[in-house]
Design a protein around this nucleic acid. Structure first.
Length: 332
DNA sequence: GCGACAG
DNA sequence: ATCTTGTCGC
């Protein structure tokens, strides 16, 4: 049961109801008209959310919505989540939409775009730009303890794990916390999905006297289009040093060909080095970036010191393990 | 065929 | 991230 207890770090993270907003958009599409995944994403405030729109529209619980009125930008009707393209075309034709071959024809004649102009993701982007000015890049302070944090999901719940470790990466103690998931995964907006769980588990760690000198976060720091990935965002909110470690590349350019274990190369975004790709295994690369109150050299030093025989630095590997165990235990 | 965007 | 069958590695 998610606890509603007050958090020590005032939750300065307003979470918009993106899914409810998307539902209202889809409900607005009139019979005899169509819109596109892209147009819905733009109405949400970011064309980059198109894939999220597609994933959301095929969920079983959303099939009572007029999902057949959402087509590809090419005019291709696509197909229904639980049906064929012929069925989707037939539904559109029954509403007066002309379909030739697999396509709505001509698309502009039927295209519906008169959506509300709130664009919630645009507001989040502005918030990111504001917060990015508060990120401080400086060498990490001398540290004795480090904590790794990660989140696992199951049903509508998120379980965050916080594992405290020493300079050798040996686990000292851990806590977990469970919160309700209130925001979907949309690339570059991960903070709004995961930070509520992080704040909850950090509060537990604080109350248990397990505060660490540095926080390792599963995700990026400034390796982000607006230089404010979840590690930086969290660091600014709690005013503590954070370092981001991701298992895959979000953005930026890096050539990883021919890297040897232990080697790292800069990840460059818009001409700026925002992180490093570090080879931690024969076929494993992780992406390190400063979060807050950290810089790239000290972040790399910290992470390389904590990497043992696994791809991830020990505290994160343990946090991942603990979160996974905790989320499994919920169902058993 | 292109592009491929953390969790 | 999660779901989930079968599976061999640049």
């Amino acid at each position: 049961m998610p606890s509603g207890e007050a958090n020590h770090w005032e939750t300065a993270l307003a979470i918009p109801d993106i899914e409810g907003f998307l539902r209202s958009l889809v409900e607005r599409i009139p019979p005899g008209r169509v819109t596109t995944f892209r147009a819905l994403a733009e109405a949400l405030g970011d064309p980059g959310a198109a894939r999220f729109v597609g994933q959301w529209l095929v969920r079983p619980e959303n099939q009572s919505l007029p999902v057949h009125r959402v087509v590809h930008a090419s005019g291709d009707v696509g197909r229904l989540a639980f049906g064929t393209w012929e069925e989707k075309a037939a539904r559109l034709q029954a509403e007066g939409v002309r379909v030739v071959g697999h396509k709505v024809d001509p698309l502009p004649r039927y295209f519906f775009w008169d959506f509300p102009t709130q664009r919630p993701l645009e507001a989040l982007r502005k918030e990111q730009e504001r917060l990015a000015t508060q990120v401080r890049l400086s060498p990490l302070p001398a540290w004795e303890t480090v904590a790794g944090v990660d989140v696992a999901y199951r049903d509508g719940e998120a379980v965050a794990a916080y594992v405290l470790a020493d300079r050798q990466g040996e686990p000292l103690d851990f806590v977990t916390a469970e919160v309700e998931v209130k925001f979907p995964y949309i690339p570059t907006y991960l903070s709004w999905r995961e930070i509520p769980a992080y704040l909850a588990v950090l509060e537990k760690a604080r109350q248990a006297g397990l505060e660490a000198d540095v926080l390792l976060v599963d995700g990026n720091g400034i390796l982000h289009p607006k230089r404010i990935g979840v590690a930086s965002h969290l660091g600014v909110l709690i005013g503590r040093p954070t370092v981001g470690v991701a298992k895959r590349r979000l953005c930026g350019e890096v050539n990883t060909t021919g890297m040897v274990v232990g080697e790292w190369r800069p990840v460059v975004l818009e001409g700026e080095t925002v992180g490093a790709a570090l080879r931690t295994g024969r076929n494993q690369t992780i992406f390190i970036s400063p979060g807050h109150l950290a810089d790239l050299p000290s972040s790399l030093e910290l992470v390389t010191q904590l990497v043992r025989e696994h791809p991830l630095p020990e505290p994160l590997r343990w946090a991942h393990e603990v979160a996974g165990e905790a989320v499994q235990a919920k169902g058993t």
